[in-house]
Design a protein around this nucleic acid. Structure first.
Lengths: 325, 325
DNA sequence: TATTCTGCGTTATCCGGTTGACATACGCTT
DNA sequence: AAGCGTATGTCAACCGGATAACGCAGAATA
């Protein structure tokens, strides 16, 4: 079980350690004969170069951290899958961190960067007040979250998404549209959805009402908010939910309040992730360009890692209609 | 930007490198005064011990690989989230690999183990014929997949799940129940679901029909199978799908074939992951104990890492009814 | 024939932290 | 005064691989 190392290969092949390393890294002058000898020795011994030793010398691990609230979510699940695919193609492996409800955990993952365990980080978590982000020029990219001034953000066009969703409900004849979103204090571009909703409502002389739902609170708590909405606003005939699972909870609450969906209440969600579309195709929603967001984040991270300055990016969204309305 | 290392801390604190290392690892005799001096120096320099150097010496990375088809899936998403949570508590970080449709990628992740980049592996992928698994006593645990004789499997009771699902459809009066599952050649305990279905059908003197759907094929291809089912078997009034997303596709196909669900065709799914339950609460399904499966897999892996022999484990499943039938 | 290219070996150093062996010095106990 | 526990320092080796510098053949080229 003793690990096979370079030296063992060298002895087996009857060459020097340097030569084996040369073969491995394809440097310097080498004859076919020697290359074959070394390769044969490596095969016979089933040699695998120790990645950690190499990392130590190269000062690179080829690992990138992904820190999001939880991968058990249609949006983040798809996003992280897309990120992994792209990073893999570039030779990076991915360390996954789920930080929901645990700022300390988020900070621990951030430490991996300072530890030298990972080369870069893509974050989309929601915990506030982590000061370690406030370094300059860190190889970090954030998705749909404002982390610090120095860190570029990849976001979909939340303002436009907010308008699109609200417009659809207005077009469908809704008179009393209520919006849900994160608490206004959250550092996420999500607040732009709210702005889109509020501005459009004002333009139409409608009353704007936003209920706040923290992403990290448990489902029953979220469901309770929608129950409250219909209790406090029985006139409500339209809901613009800030994500698709909340849209589902809105529908449940509406039904429980004795309303028919979509006849009495229409609901528009947000995200449009693939598994949501598959499992709940009736839902009308604002679809984020998840694949493009992943691609963009990876591009930005690569530039960051190369020491280049990068700007935040905003991508377009579109409204997709539920198959039955 | 030059990395701060042990030696810098030692100089700053006016002690030897060994002493700093002793403080870090809490070994040997140390005075309060020295400990404080060293800690102050570490803070002033913002010292972070290099994890890779430590890994090289300790021959441990505290990283565990998770290799599943894709995290963009309600079942695997929840499973991987649960695994990350538990492994994190034990001090492990998690490397995520999505291997769908790519045996070579699965093999690459397996190589991380032989590279020394990860300490252990939890796999649930479906690619066949990867010979590297056939080593003895590797720190690998598999979930719902038979990898090799030496590797323990954590599975839910698939046979019983198959019977439960079929029984429910029989109880609901279905006469012609069709099942879908992976190709019979797949090395997964999924085949036990099929056995449960087939045996129960035989016991009731019914005809058993199983259509095969590869997990890794694209959604339209899967949907086409269900379309074919209703074309070839217009009498079909019950579907036992091997997972919940396929159950959704079955329902879509039934509706497209002019059938009403559940009046004309009843569907039972499999998995019962949290986001599926949330987004598609109407579905009756066999619920796998995902949290327990994650916990068990982590327990087994820990024992493997400690060099202990372990046995495969089977956990119970239960049927959960859709809220509207 | 002189020069350059090719194909290796030798040696030493580095990456950054860990650890064992040993030496030293101080203070306290018996 | 001898012995012991405490508190450090010094030195060297180690984890496993990468690399620069140098030397030295033999072959190819000028």
């Amino acid at each position: 079980m003793a690990r096979v190392k370079l030296q063992d290969v060298a002895e087996r092949a009857g060459v020097s350690v340097t030569t084996v390393s040369r073969v491995l890294n394809n440097r310097g002058y080498l004859s076919e004969k020697t290359i074959n000898k070394v390769h044969r020795a490596m095969e016979e011994l089933n040699y695998r170069p120790n990645a950690v030793a190499r990392q130590l010398f190269k000062q690179r691990t080829n690992l990138v951290g992904l820190v999001f609230p939880t991968v058990n979510n249609p949006f983040f699940g798809q996003l992280e899958a897309e990120l992994e695919t792209r990073l893999y193609e570039l030779g990076y492996r991915v360390v996954m961190g789920n930080s929901q409800n645990d700022p300390q955990k988020e900070e621990r993952y951030l430490q991996l960067l300072f530890n030298g365990q990972i080369d870069g980080l893509i974050v989309g978590a929601h915990n506030e007040g982590i000061t370690a982000y406030h370094n300059t020029n860190l190889p970090i990219v954030s998705i749909e979250r404002i982390v610090s001034k120095q860190i570029p953000v990849v976001a979909a066009d939340n303002y436009r998404g907010g308008r699109l969703a609200t417009q659809r409900l207005l077009d469908d004849g809704c008179q009393h549209i209520i919006h849900t979103n994160y608490p206004a204090s959250s550092s996420t571009p999500n607040q732009e959805r709210r702005r889109g909703y509020e501005e459009l409502m004002e333009e139409h002389g409608r009353q704007k009402i936003t209920y706040e739902i923290s992403f990290d609170s448990p489902d029953p708590e979220k469901a309770a908010v929608f129950t409250r909405i219909f209790a406090e606003h029985p006139e409500c005939d339209g809901i613009f939910a800030d994500n698709d699972t909340n849209a589902r909870l809105a529908i449940n609450a509406a039904v429980q309040a004795g309303k028919r969906v979509p006849e009495d209440v229409k609901v528009v969600g947000y995200d449009g992730a693939s598994s949501t579309r598959l499992l709940f195709p009736d839902l009308t929603t604002i679809q984020q360009p998840i694949a493009e967001m992943a691609q963009t984040a990876v591009d930005l991270l690569q530039k960051r890692l190369a020491g280049q300055a990068v700007e935040s990016v905003t991508l377009p969204v579109k409204l997709v209609s539920g198959i039955t309305g």
